[in-house]
Every structure is written in structure tokens, then in C-alpha cells.
Amino acid sequence: MALAGISSLGQSDPKGGSHTRTPLQRFQLPVKFKPIGLIPFFGFVGLFLVWPAFSLFRLAIQPTKNSDISAMREAITGDYLDSFIYTIKLSLLTALLGVLLGSLLAASVLRIERPKWFRNFMTSFAGVAANLGGIPLAFAFIAALGTQGLITKMIDYFGVNLSDAGFRISNFAGITIVYLYFQIPLMFLIMVPAFNGLRAAWSEAAASLGAAPWQYWRYVGLPLLTPALLGGFLLLFSNAFSAYATAYALSSGGARLVPVQIRFFLQGNTITGKDNLGYALAAWMIIIMLITMTGYLFVRRRAEKWQQ
């Protein structure tokens, strides 16, 4: 039972050798039965992740009736390819801006020490804003920045016409702004604990060694924050990539986002000769997320090399 010996090392009472076990430990299974504890986890993953994905791919690669190209091919040609490019562009842009602005916001809020309630207020607000999406958010923005929106009218009063300037709440710039409303607070929530993890002694040690603030950030601060920044970027990217209700409501159903396209098929619509296209679009979304996650794990491992 070498394993049990090692685990008890860290918990043993430094003053005596008494082997007191916590109530939870007392009810632990013998080592050979321990994998049993993982059954609920694998059951959950199998039922809600592996099996649906498997079924999806099976349907997506089925030969299509009345068509000489497969649904998987069809899903990345023509308008559908444009949809993918549009969705990836939107996700990348809002993730990048979210990472940048959310991190700056976290850094500046943490610098404000007084009033004491301010930091908690910002964290609570970010928690709400990060989870506010979908139709309520879309309508809030339509009411503010839509063609008849309050802010649109106010700006118009000062002689600037948003429509004439090419801005629509339903076009790329409009959707980007609306997405940032939840992307920035989400990044803020990720970065607050990351910034708190940076010890004051590190920046002070750097300063006493002659490092200007930018040198501290260049050689110590940013490298230490990189894993959190990368993780945040991935989360924001997938957040934007899979969001659809917000964009759908903003554009009255006409947005070119892939999830909105999939919704068309979900509603039971079919186009003759494109039976399995909905499955194929979803399959490609999964593939893109898998590629992104693999890339993320690779980059993250490099960024965390100092921890091994």
C-alpha cells in the first residue's frame, strides 16, 4: 500500500505519529475498488458527449440521396464555407478583444483599493454580465444601438448618423460590440484570480534588481499570466463560436453564423439533396473546436514548462 503511505505523509500530524483519519477517509474503498468511483463520470461523458458526437458523425458521413457530393463536403463549400469563415472571424475578433480589454479591466480594478466595496461590486457585476446573453441582451442592444435606439438617436442629435456611417446592430461590427458585452466580463472573471496569484514580492524583487515596470511584465508578469490568458482566449473563442441566440435575435434570423444555419435544419427544414447538411455543419463545428483545443493544449504545455 505504497500509495496510501505517500498520501498520508502530507496529512500526518507533525507533532505525533497518530494516524487519525477524517470521517471521509474512514469510508474509503479499498484501493482495488477505487476505479468504481469513476463510473458516474464516464457514464456522464459517454451518454452526453461521446454517444451524441458519434451519432452525429455517423449521420453526417452518410451518403446523400439525389446528390453526388457528400454532406461533409457540401458543408464547407459556397455559402456554408462563408458562414464558417464569418463565424471564425467573429469568434477570433471578440475573443482577442475580450482577452485584451477584460485583462486590462481586471488589472485596473485590482489597483483600486478604495472604496473597498468597489472590487466586490465589479466582480458581482461581471458575474451577471458574463452570463447575460441571448434574446434579452439582443433586445437591450437593439433598444440602445438599433436603428431607433436611444443611443443612436442621441448621437444623431449631435449630427452623427450611425446608419450612414455603415453601422448596423445586425452586421459584423454590431454583433462584435454585443458579444463584447459578455466576453469582457468573462475574461475579467478569469483574470482577477490570475492577477491575485502574482505576488507583490516578485514585482518588488524585480524593481530592486533594477527592472523598470515594463521589464517586470515582459520577463516575469506576462509569462506567469500566459496560461490564464490562453485558457481565457479558448473559453472566449468557444463561447462566441457556439453562441447563436443573441445573433439570431439581433438579425431577425438572417445572420450568417454557423449555429444559426444549424438552427434552420434543427427546426425540421430540409433542402432536397441536402438531407444531412445540418449534421455535417455540427460535425465541422466539433472538428474546429477539437483543433482549437489541441492547439491550446500544445501552447499551454509550452507556457507552463516552468511548472514541471
Binding site: W202, A205, A207, L209, G210, Y219, V220, W306
Partner: peptide, 20 residues
């Protein structure tokens, strides 16, 4: 400013940069 004073400092908590 601190970084122009040329003072060597050692802290109570270990302050080595963990990434270097």
C-alpha cells in the same frame, strides 16, 4: 523610483521568479 536605487533586497517569502 525603486528600480533606480540600486538596493539589493531579500524578502521573507521566497521571491524567486517561478518561471525562471
Amino acid at each position: 523610483p525603486a528600480h533606480q536605487r540600486r538596493m539589493g533586497m531579500v524578502f521573507q517569502s521566497y521571491s524567486l521568479f517561478p518561471n525562471l
